[in-house]
Amino acid sequence: MAPALLLSLACFGVPALFMARMSLNGHEPQTAYVAGFTFDHYRRLLSDPLIAGVIWNTVRLAFFASILTVALAYAFALLVWLRPGRWRFMFVGLALLPMLISEIAIIFGWWTIFPKNGLLSYILVSTGLTNDKISLMYTEGAALVGLVYVTLPYCFFILLSVFDGIDRRTLEAASDLGAPPFTTFSEVILPQTLVGLFAAFAQAFIWTIGVYATPLALGPDTLWTLGYLIQDQMLSKHHWPMAATLSMALMLGVAGTMAVIRWLQPTQRSFHV
């Protein structure tokens, strides 16, 4: 593991140290930063209500997107695992499609679906579910759907690998003992995939909490996330220390979330028929 560890330290550890140092520099108008040592930006991080609202929006959106992603990925992975082999290739190929398209192209795709004259509105009116055309563009729901779509494949493959590690004879044993489908799921399948659920949630949360383009392009103007605020401080206001401070807060928040998930994650146990 030494080469991978050294590569990670070089590519991520060293830039993180530079970012931490930048967060302690000063700032004056018309300058990107002034070399110094101050904790003013961290004090602002804890006292500014605007930043607090942005952090809350980011965490809230990432949490609900992660929950929805894990639920859909779990159901999809279970469906693929239970299907015969000839179906598996088609479903896996379907899951790979979002990973073969850039995030910008995906956003343009949603722009053809969510507007008032888009595909979704046309389907709802044609089927009689609504009388008037509706628009979901620039809503939190649109941003949520976009985030779920981007992160779903990663969670799906994590959970599918966990399902592939289950001995199918346990299902046969449960059936022979008279267990109905729901009991088989709750007593046999779910306990053996619980670790995978935590891993999938961690993956989804890390991805969604740092995504910048999708909430900005699909969500309302009031839906500011940490990613948007960092680029605003960096490129628009040319306040590099504040951008670095927000980045450090995001990085430490993700690390803390990972630690909590790791602590709550159950220990994998062996299961035998």
Results as ranks from 00 to 15, higher is better:
123 I>F: 12
262 R>Q: 13
75 A>Y: 04
33 Y>C: 06
215 P>A: 07
110 W>F: 11
115 P>G: 06
135 S>R: 08
268 Q>L: 00
271 F>W: 03
126 S>H: 12
4 A>L: 15
11 C>V: 13
59 V>T: 00
16 A>I: 14
100 L>I: 11
191 P>W: 09
237 K>G: 00
159 L>A: 07
136 L>P: 04
65 A>D: 05
65 A>M: 02
116 K>W: 07
134 I>H: 01
251 M>S: 15
99 M>S: 12
128 G>L: 11
151 T>Q: 03
31 T>R: 15
106 I>C: 05
191 P>M: 07
194 L>I: 12
169 R>M: 04
250 L>F: 01
170 T>K: 08
50 L>Y: 03
272 H>L: 14
137 M>K: 02
258 M>Q: 11
56 W>E: 13
232 D>Q: 13
13 G>E: 04
180 P>K: 14
50 L>Q: 03
128 G>P: 10
181 P>S: 14
88 R>W: 00
215 P>Y: 02
56 W>K: 14
177 L>Y: 15
182 F>T: 15
74 Y>S: 07
198 F>L: 08
209 I>H: 01
184 T>W: 02
226 L>Q: 00
112 T>G: 13
227 G>K: 01
167 D>Q: 09
92 V>R: 06
30 Q>W: 08
229 L>W: 01
234 M>Q: 14
95 A>L: 09
1 M>G: 06
